[in-house]
Simulated assay, not measured.
Amino acid sequence: MTSSTPWQQRLSTGTEDIQDEVIGWYQQTRHGKAYVPNMIWGTVQTEAYATVVLSRVVDFLGVPDDVPAGVAKRMERQQVLYDGEHRYDVVLGEQALYTNVGGSLVMCEQLERLLREMDLPSLGLGILPADAEFGIVPMPGFNMGEDRAHYELVSCGVDITDVDELALHHKAFDALSGAARYGDSARSLINKALAFWSNT
């Protein structure tokens, strides 16, 4: 089954309520997966980076501006990385390290945080190099829990719950993670991006 809800409807009261909903999903998801090709995964975003992202959402969609409350909830959601009960396997596209969110100071702080967090036992962080070859066609980013895959599109969020479709998402994630770099190789790609932003 596939369902979608327009962002204006989901964000009709601002960003805090939906961030609270995401916290619940992450707390229930013992083993999650995420592929994020163009930006930093929300659960490792810095406060400054998240503020820019949610501010752009509010401006673009014209929804109520409660960005500080939404950011506070996004920071609260990150506790799943430290409670010892959850595991998240995340593949970031190399482009995510270069997409300009807030300028060089925000980007440097964000990449430094990635370098600190990538060794957490709860986090398997891979970077998919821009020149990587992998066995599927390019696709938009998605998040997966045990019972659904979630896409964030321009106009709406889409949830997929069909078992066969979820199996294809797991297969796609395996192909992406198989082509990604981990450990020192991932760290090298992040450091390269950090050097870029430090000199911008």
Rank of each mutant, 00 (worst) to 15 (best):
Q27T: 13
L166M: 09
V106I: 12
Q95M: 11
D131L: 11
K73Q: 13
K171Y: 11
T29G: 02
T29M: 00
K73R: 15
V80W: 07
M75D: 00
T29S: 02
C156G: 01
A172N: 11
D59A: 15
D147V: 14
H86C: 10
E16A: 15
Q110R: 03
M139V: 11
I160N: 08
L92M: 02
V67D: 05
A195R: 03
A69W: 13
E85A: 04
E85T: 06
L189F: 01
N199E: 13
G93N: 00
S122C: 09
D20Q: 15
H169I: 04
S3Y: 05
Y88M: 10
N199Q: 14
E85D: 08
P121E: 11
D20W: 15
E109N: 08
V163E: 14
H170M: 03
S185R: 07
G141P: 02
H31F: 13
A72K: 14
L128H: 03
I190D: 03
G157M: 08
Q79P: 00
R113Q: 14
S4V: 13
A48K: 13
S4E: 15
A132S: 05
M39Q: 13
D164L: 09
Y49E: 05
L11D: 06
Q19D: 08
V58I: 10
A179S: 00
D65L: 05
Y26L: 14
V158A: 05
E165N: 02
L194T: 02
E165G: 01
A50F: 00
D89M: 08
S198Q: 13
K33Q: 15
M118F: 09
R74Y: 07
A175M: 12
S177R: 05
P64N: 06
T2I: 15
M75P: 01
L54F: 07
N191M: 08
A195Q: 05
C156Q: 11
E112Q: 15
D184W: 06
P68Y: 13
R10F: 13
V101P: 01
R87A: 06
R10A: 15
L54W: 08
P37S: 06
L166F: 04
V90E: 07
D174V: 04
G84R: 01
R30T: 10
D20Y: 14
D59C: 02
A72D: 10
G102E: 09
Y182T: 06
